[in-house]
């Protein structure tokens, strides 16, 4: 076992700065570790990452959609394209855990093809653990680790409701992958998650009319739910075929456009801030409940604390606020 404390954290920070894959893996293990002394080291690491200037501007993309929609193969096609321009890519793929045993089958997906497995792409699978339909606890921290190394960070989740909300808070652009076939859209509308994605992709466009029909349905449904203010982003509905490598460039263009527009309008910065707030509030509420949260002044107080300058990661702030709640609710 590796040593604890700041010597190890320093070594990991150096390793991450150098893009060392063993260090990336160890850092991901560390932020996933629940033992208290390891959590302390993890916080140190994340604080270190929060204060260190990065040589690149990382961009996070969420890929979500129903099982079988072809998320992995679409991601595979995207990665192939991005690799052609030498971009560094980190991927976190979240799979559900068995509610009965706590175990999980991960990585049972379209594998990254030979070229994509070369040094430029890093893939970590995570189990959602006890979070039914949600992200893994370590996903947020894992994304922070990968963002410190790679320009592109993808987070792939199985979409069954809850995970869309959580992944939307965590990424800069959320891509929803739909597959041709009736029924889907209606369900998503019911779930109220149709307003979250920034880009819709109807995969398996090789099916022709069926894909066109699904695109039409999605477009008209979106037209009903969203009436954008001028300057707002209007989610496009794209057609793609991961199998035939069709529509991948269009998707990359849409990603670039969403990013540029977000940077220019300031929306991206605001989204990242509100995403961090939501993460902090959710973590605290999950642990201490609404009652606990109110003891320190609720979501607003959390936002203020996060906005305060200081060399700390949001994870450290969450821990600090948690301690305050514990003190506040302790009798006497």
């Amino acid at each position: 076992m590796s040593g604890h404390g700041s010597g190890r954290v320093e070594r990991l920070l150096e390793g991450l700065a150098a893009g060392d894959r063993t260090a990336i893996s160890e850092a991901l293990n560390l932020v996933d570790d629940r033992r208290s002394e390891q959590r302390q080291a993890a916080l140190e690491l994340l604080d270190g990452l929060a204060t260190r200037p990065l040589p690149h501007a990382p961009y996070r993309v969420g890929i979500t959609g129903a099982p079988g929609a072809g998320k992995s193969s679409l991601l595979n096609a995207l990665v192939e394209k991005l690799r052609a321009s030498d971009a560094g890519i980190g991927i976190i793929a979240v799979d559900p855990s068995s509610q009965r045993s706590g175990g999980a089958l991960l990585g049972d997906r379209m594998r990254l093809s030979g070229g994509a497995r070369e040094s430029g792409v890093f893939l970590r699978s995570m189990a959602a653990r006890d979070r039914l339909g949600g992200l893994a606890d370590a996903t947020q921290a894992g994304a922070t680790v990968l963002s410190s190394v790679f320009e592109w960070v993808f987070i792939e989740t199985v979409g069954i409701g809850q995970s869309e909300c959580e992944v939307a808070q965590l990424v800069d652009t959320l891509v929803f992958v739909a597959q041709p076939g009736a029924g889907d859209t209606l369900q998503f509308m019911k779930a109220g998650i149709l307003e979250l994605p920034d880009i819709f992709v109807v995969n398996k466009a090789d099916t022709g009319p069926a894909a066109e029909r699904t695109r039409g349905e999605l477009e008209s449904t979106l037209g009903l739910t969203a009436s954008p203010e001028p300057g707002d982003w209007r989610p496009p509905v794209l057609l793609a075929s991961a199998q035939d490598r069709q529509g991948i460039d269009t998707l990359l263009d849409a990603l670039a456009e969403h990013r540029d527009q977000g940077l220019k309008s300031g929306r991206l910065e605001a989204r990242r801030q509100s995403g961090e707030q939501a993460f902090a509030v959710d973590s605290l509420a999950r642990r201490y409940g609404e009652y606990g949260l109110e003891r320190i002044g609720g979501a607003q107080a959390v936002a203020q604390r996060l906005a305060a300058p200081g060399p700390r990661s949001i994870f450290a702030v969450v821990l600090e606020l948690g301690r305050e709640i514990e003190r506040a609710v302790k009798p006497g």
Binding site: S97, S98, S101, G102, G103, A104, L105, L106, G107, D108, R111, S125, A127
Partner: peptide, 16 residues
């Protein structure tokens, strides 16, 4: 092996 390992509570990466 992969299915059984999941059933006893392990996290299994099965790459085929």
């Amino acid at each position: 092996i992969a299915v059984k390992a999941r059933d006893v509570g392990m996290e299994v990466v099965y790459d085929g």
